[in-house]
């Protein structure tokens, strides 16, 4: 039966505006407030002296508590903030540059290559902190470059599919390399350190380690932040971007190098942390819309909150430490499944 309601002009539903819940002007401030709150609470949250919040008074009368908060938790939290910002914004950059919402740095060989670089310097170069980091960054770039070069030679499918196939192959090659390095590593000294890379975690962050990663991460994040409107333009098809006066390849390369630099530097101090680079950009786009002028800052803040919360869980869930990479993968994958099964969520791959 046709009721009068069904006879309405069909364009009624088409004219509904794109959903914007919280005005964009306030979103970053609300998220920043949330981040500061979570950050401060996390400083006092932990398993010392018992599970729960550390009483404020202990900071002045318990030297061990002060030491714990200022020299262990503070650098660790700052690292979580930076790593969350890095992985989330790099994920957004990758998704936009490759016009594919399902891409993240890990898919294109960057993460595995960076882990290989770190493991290589642990086994063969004695593993000084700066060497491990430099090698992780260098190999991360090499991983991206190999995926890119390989994709140009694949004679099958469209550009995005070729890139993904190439990325899978490059990732697999580097993880085979990591396997070989594990086999060769000294089981007492080197193997535990390599295993740490593969599971990911922030328990070994010290002020020194944090500061050594800081310059590259800050420069990379700054480049991404400053180019945030431009990122929209490099995500357009080549012909269109060219006609808008963009030096397409040069600008894509610049912003990709920034994204790889922050990813690989993060990995170099935290080990492999999966899924944050895929899931946070999706959430950020849902909140702020597709325009990367808004979605980049939101992605950074969201990533920071996500990482701090996951790391809190990692250090307090069990008496020992749960590797952070395992937690982010679990939380990320569950969120992903949840979003995928929402009717209004569309993935245009």
């Amino acid at each position: 039966m046709t009721s009068p309601d069904n006879l309405r002009a069909p364009d009624k539903t088409d004219t509904k505006p794109a959903p914007i819940r919280l005005s964009r002007r306030w979103q970053p401030w609300v998220l920043l407030g949330l981040l500061v709150a979570v950050f401060v609470l996390s400083l006092f949250w932990g398993r010392y002296p018992r599970v729960g919040f550390l009483p404020l008074a202990n900071l002045s009368n318990d030297p061990l508590a002060a030491q714990l908060v200022w020299n262990l938790r503070l650098p660790r939290l700052l690292a979580a903030v930076l790593i969350g910002m890095s992985l989330a914004s790099a994920g957004m950059v990758f998704q936009m540059v490759f016009s594919n919402p399902l891409v993240e740095p890990g898919f294109l060989g960057v993460s595995q290559a960076a882990a290989f670089g770190a493991a290589f310097s642990i086994v063969f170069l004695n593993g000084a902190a700066w060497l491990v980091q430099g090698s992780a960054v260098l190999f991360g770039l090499l991983g991206l470059a190999s995926s890119y070069a390989l994709a140009r030679r694949v004679r099958y499918g469209g550009w995005v599919l070729r890139l993904l196939l190439a990325g899978i192959a490059v990732s697999a090659m580097f993880s085979a390399g990591v396997g070989l390095l594990k086999y060769l590593a000294d089981p007492m000294r080197q193997l535990p350190e390599i295993t740490f890379w593969l599971l990911g975690g922030l328990y070994s962050i010290t002020w020194q380690r944090l500061l050594s990663a800081l310059p590259l991460i800050l420069v990379g994040l700054l480049v991404i932040y400053l180019m945030r409107w431009r990122l929209n333009l490099v995500s357009l098809e080549d012909d269109v971007a060219f006609s808008l006066g963009i030096a397409v390849n040069r600008e894509r390369l610049l912003i990709l190098v920034a994204a790889v630099a922050v990813t690989a530097t993060s990995i170099s101090i935290s080990g492999l942390i999966g899924w944050a680079g895929l899931i946070v950009p999706h959430l950020a786009r849902r909140l702020a819309g597709a325009d990367s002028r808004y979605s980049i800052p939101i992605s950074m803040l969201f990533g920071a909150v996500f990482m701090v919360v996951c790391d809190n869980l990692a250090r307090t869930l069990l008496a020992g430490e749960v590797p952070l990479g395992i937690l982010t993968s679990l939380v990320g994958a569950l969120t992903f499944l949840f979003l995928m099964t929402r009717p209004q969520m569309r993935f245009h791959a």
């Binding site: 794109a18 936009m96 012909d239 269109v240 006066g245 963009i246 597709a290 791959a349």
Partner: peptide, 29 residues
């Protein structure tokens, strides 16, 4: 390129739009 972009605009036959921009954001590009 930029000078040319102020003189000549192109409209491709089809365009792949993987991200959900608003119309104004897209035109602003």
């Amino acid at each position: 390129r930029a000078e040319l972009g102020k003189q000549v605009g192109i409209v491709p036959q089809r365009e792949h739009t993987p991200f959900e921009y608003t119309i104004l954001e897209y035109v602003l590009l």
